[in-house]
Design a protein around this nucleic acid. Structure first.
Lengths: 349, 349
DNA sequence: TTGTAGGCGTTATCAA
DNA sequence: TTGATAACGCCTACAA
C-alpha cells in the first residue's frame, strides 16, 4: 500500500495524494475528499523513511540517557519525549550505559538515523578527560546537541543545568545555622553535576569556617545498604551530626544508618539529599531534598531546541529580523524542599 | 557525504561500497581496505532511511509505554531497549499517556515509522471494552505486537505475563496462615494485571473462608498520602490487621498509615505489596513485596520476538524444518519476597 | 488546480 | 570480484 495505489484508487496523480497528506492548500475540496476517503478505506499510512529521504528531516530527536531505570533519568525521558511530541517531533531513545565506547556507538547510531538533534540527558556525558568529549564536539557539527544537567563548551552545543553547586552551598550553610557542627558529604559519582555539588560543599564548608575534619567527604555506591554501612564505619571513626547526600538514594541509606544506630532524626542527625524524587517522600521521616527542577530543565531544553530548529517560527512576512541568538548555557536555580530530616532555623536570605 | 562520495574517493563503484558497509564476503581484501579507509577518513555514516527504504526494514522496534516515569515501566523500557540493541535492533519510544485516543495515535505513528514490531509495555493497554482493543488487533496484521504484562487474543499478538493472580492468592493464604483475620486490599487501577490481582484476592479470600467484611476491597489513588488517609478512614469504619497493595506505592502509603495510627508493623499490621521496586527497600521496615519478574518478562519478550522476526536464524542450508511455533501466551511465575512487613509462619507448599 | 519527472541514498539484481 | 541500473516510496519543482 503506497502512494501509487492510493492515487490509482482515487483516480488522481500521486502529487495530489502527496498534497492531501501534507495538508497543502492548493487542492480542490473535491480531490481532497476523494483522496481522504480512499486513504481511510485502505488504512494507508505514508512511509516515513521515504518521506524523510525526500525532505531530509524526519522530525525526530535522538535522546541519550545512561540508564532509563534511574528514577531521575526516567522522569527526564518522560518530560522530554512528551514535550517533543507536543511539538510534532518523535524521539528515538538510546540507553547507552556508562561505558564511553558504548556512548560513542549510540551517538553514531543516532547520527545514522538522521536525527534533527541529539539530547543528552543526565550529567554522565561529560567525561573528566576533555579529550573524551571530542566525539560530541565533532558530532555537533552535523546537528545541535542539547545537554540536560551537564555542560560542554562547543559550537552548536547547548546546555541547560541547575545550580546544584549553589544549592549545596546553601544547604551547608543552613545546616550549620541550625546547629550542625560536624558534617559529612556522601557522593557517588564524579559526573558533571557530581563535581559541581562537591565544589558547593567545600565552598559552603569554607564559608562557615568548618575544618576539614568537620566537613568530611566520602564516596559510596548507589545502594541503600551500602551507604548505610559506609556511614556506620565513618561514624565509628568520628561521629557527625549532619549528612549531605548527592542523591535521594543515599539519603535513604543515611536514614537506614540513623535507624540502625538509634539516632533520632532530625534531633541527633540531620539529612539533606538531592533530587526530590519519589524516594524523598517514601521514607519516615520524609527527606529534606533539593529539587533540581528536572521538569523545568526539560521544558527549557525543548523550547531552546525548537528555537534552534526553526529560528523564525512565524516569519512568513518579509520582515527583516535578526535570528534570536540562543544562549549556549542556561542555568536554573534549585529549590530546597524542607521535610522531616532537618530542623532549619529560618530561611536564609 | 553519501555512498557516491565514498565510491568516488575510493575509486570503486557504489555497489562495492555497499558491500563493504554490509560486510558482504564477496569483496576483495584490497577493495575493502580502500573503502574502509575512505569511510573512516570522511567519517561517513550510511543514511538509515535510504537503507530502510531499500531493504524494507529498519531493524527498529516501537516501544509503547503509558508513562516512562513510572518506576515499573521505566525499568521495563530499560530492559527492553538494552536487550533489543544487543540483538541489533533499535527502539523508538512512545510515552502514550492513558488516553485511548492518544494510544491509538502513537500506535499509528509507530506504524508509519515502519517498525518491525511493536512492544506494548505495561498492563494499561488492555481496555475493558474489547471493542477498544480492535486497533491493536487490526494493527497486528502489519507486524507482530508483543504485550508485556498484559494479554489480548489475536493473530500475530504475543503476550508475556506474570502470574499476579496466583501470587495474590498465595499472599492472602500466607497472611491468614500467619494469623491475619481481617484483610483489606488496596488497588488503584483496573488494568489487565489489576483485574487479575483482584481475582486472586477474592479467590484467596474464598479459599481461606474469609467473609466479605473480612476481605474488604477499596480503590485509591496512586499517592502515598492519599492511600494513607484512605486507610485511616477505612480503619475507623472497621479495623484490619493486614493490607494487601497492588503496588509498592500503596505499600508505602500503608506504612505511613500504620505510623500515623501507631500500629506496629508487622505485629499489629502486616503489609504485602507488589512489584518489588526500589520503594520496597527504601522504607522501614522494608516491604514484603511480590516480584513480578519484570526483567525476565522483558528478556522473554525479546527472545520470542527474535524468533518471530527470524524464524530460522541459521537455516542457510536447504534443511527442511518446521518453523517453530511461537506460543502466543507466556506466563511466568511470580515470587514473594519476604521482608519486614510480614511475619509469615512458613513457606506454604 | 493538477500531473510529470527528477531526486533523495541505499540495496539488490544482473551482466560482465 | 566488480559495476551498471532498477527498484524503494515519497517530495517538489516545473509544466500544463
Amino acid at each position: 500500500m503506497n502512494i501509487y495505489d492510493i492515487s490509482k484508487a482515487a483516480g488522481v496523480s500521486i502529487a495530489s495524494v502527496s498534497r492531501v497528506i501534507n495538508g497543502a492548500d492548493n487542492v480542490s475540496e473535491k480531490t481532497r475528499e476523494k483522496v481522504l476517503k480512499v486513504i481511510d478505506q485502505y488504512g494507508y499510512t505514508p512511509n516515513a523513511y521515504a518521506r524523510g529521504l525526500g525532505r531530509g528531516s524526519m522530525r525526530t530527536i535522538g535522546i541519550m540517557c545512561s540508564d532509563s531505570s534511574d528514577i531521575y533519568l526516567a522522569n527526564a525521558i518522560h518530560y522530554l519525549e512528551t514535550g517533543l511530541r507536543e511539538h510534532g517531533y518523535n524521539s528515538i531513545l538510546c540507553c547507552t550505559g556508562y561505558d564511553l565506547e558504548d556512548k560513542k556507538r549510540s551517538f553514531e547510531l543516532l547520527k545514522s538515523r538522521q536525527v534533527d538533534a541529539i539530547i543528552m540527558a543526565g550529567s554522565k556525558y561529560v567525561e573528566l578527560n576533555p579529550w573524551d568529549n571530542q566525539y560530541i564536539i565533532e558530532g555537533a557539527k552535523e546537528h545541535p546537541v542539547m545537554m540536560v544537567n551537564g555542560a560542554i563548551e562547543g559550537e552548536n552545543i547547548y546546555s541547560v543545568i541547575c545550580d546544584d553547586r549553589g544549592a549545596m552551598e546553601e544547604s551547608v550553610k543552613r545546616l550549620v545555622d541550625s546547629g550542625a557542627k560536624k558534617l559529612i558529604y556522601v557522593y557517588s559519582s564524579r559526573s558533571y553535576s557530581g563535581i559541581r555539588k562537591l565544589e558547593g560543599f567545600t565552598a559552603g564548608a569554607k564559608e562557615t569556617g568548618l575544618s576539614e575534619e568537620d566537613a568530611r567527604i566520602v564516596q559510596g555506591k548507589k545502594d541503600f545498604h551500602e551507604i548505610a554501612s559506609l556511614l556506620r564505619r565513618e561514624f565509628k571513626k568520628a561521629p557527625f551530626d549532619a549528612v549531605l547526600c548527592s542523591s535521594d538514594t543515599s539519603g535513604v541509606g543515611a536514614l537506614k544508618f540513623a535507624l540502625s544506630e538509634h539516632l533520632s532524626v532530625p534531633e541527633d542527625l540531620q539529612i539533606v539529599s538531592f533530587n526530590n524524587s519519589v524516594l524523598s517522600t517514601a521514607t519516615n521521616p520524609e527527606l529534606t531534598s533539593v529539587d533540581s527542577r528536572l521538569e523545568d530543565l526539560c521544558t527549557k531544553t525543548i523550547s531552546l531546541l525548537m528555537d534552534i530548529l526553526s529560528p523564525n517560527p512565524d516569519d512568513d512576512q518579509d520582515t527583516i529580523r535578526a535570528i534570536p541568538k540562543v544562549p549556549s548555557k542556561n542555568v536554573l536555580e534549585a529549590k530546597i524542599v524542607e521535610r522531616g530530616t532537618t530542623r532549619f532555623i529560618r530561611k536564609r536570605n
